[in-house]
Amino acid sequence: MSIDSGALAASTTQQTEQQGGAHRKGKPALSEGKKAERRLGLLLCAPAAIIMVAVTAYPIVYAIWLSFQRYDLRFPADRAFAGFANYAAVLTSEYWWRAFLVTMIITIVSVAIEFVLGLALALVMHRTIVGRGLTRTVVLIPYGIVTVVAAFSWQFAWTPDKGYLAAMLPEGAAPLTGQVSAILLIILAEVWKTTPFMALLLMAGLALVPDDLLKAAQVDGAGPWQRLTRIILPMMKPAILVALLFRTLDAFRVFDNIYILTQGSNGTGSVSMLGYDNLFKAFNLGIGSAISVLIFIAVALIAFLFIKIFGAAAPGSDEGKR
C-alpha cells in the first residue's frame, strides 16, 4: 500500500489545497515499501529499457566501429581498418554535400510551410462552428495514410499523360524530372502528409489558452491579429517548440517520399537516400556506416541547438510543464 501513496499526490493535486494531510500522505510511507516500489519500478521498466538500448545503442556503436573499416560487401576479404578514410571520402564528396543541402532545404521549407498551414488548420479545427467532428476526422487521413501510398498518389498525379495535375501543366512539362521542381513536389508531399500532425499538436496547445484571456484581450482592445501574436502564440510556445522540434528531426530523415517520387535522381536525394544507396547499390558498408554516423551527429546537433536556442522543453521532463 505504500506504493499507491507515492503517486497519490500527483493524481490528486487539484485537491491538495483543501485536503488535510495530503502533503504528508504524498510522502513515502515505509522504507521497506519504498524499496519494494523501486524494485517494482525498475522491473517494469527493464524490458523497455533493454530492448530500446539493444536495438539502438549497440548498433550505433557498431556503426561507429564499422565506419572506421574498409568494408565492401562485394569484397568481404578486403575488410580492414581504415581510420578516417571513410569520413574523408564522404566529406570530400560532392554527393554528400548536395544531399545534405537538399535535405536541409526540404527540412526548412517544409517545416516552415507546415507550421503556418498547421496553425491555420489548428485554428479552423479549434474554432469552427460547423462540421467540427468532420474536419477533425478527415485531417487524420493524411496522418494515418501510408507514406508510400501517398507518394504514389502524388507521383501518378504529376506524371505527364497520366495525372490530373500534370494535365493542368503546359504540354511537355515533366515536373518530376527537374531538380528544383522535383524538390518542390517532394516538399509538397511531405507537407501534405505531416501538416495534420503538426495541426493536432498545435491544437492541443491552443486548447491551453484560456478563453477568458482572449476575452480580456478583446476588451483591452486587441484585434484578432494582435490576439494571435500577442496572446495565443506566446502562450502556445511550449507546444509550438515541441511540434517544431519533432517535425524538424522527422523531416531531416525524409526517405519514403523521395524513394517513390524520384528515386533520388536528378540531384533530389536526401542524406537518408544517400546512406541507403551506398548500402544497397554500392554495397559499401564502411562508407554507409560513416554516413549513418554523420546523420546521427547532424540530428543530435539540430536537437541540441533547438533545446539550447529556443529552450524547447523535452516532453516528459517535469520542468517543461505548466
Binding site: M1, S5, Q19, G20, G21, A22, R24, K25, A29, G33
Partner: peptide
C-alpha cells in the same frame, strides 16, 4: 479536526489500513 498537515488524515488512513 485540524489544519492541513496536522495528521488527521494520516490517523484515519492508519485506522483504514491504507498506511502502516
Amino acid at each position: 479536526v485540524g489544519p492541513s498537515g496536522c495528521g488527521k488524515s494520516t490517523t484515519l488512513n492508519m485506522i483504514a489500513g491504507l498506511e502502516d
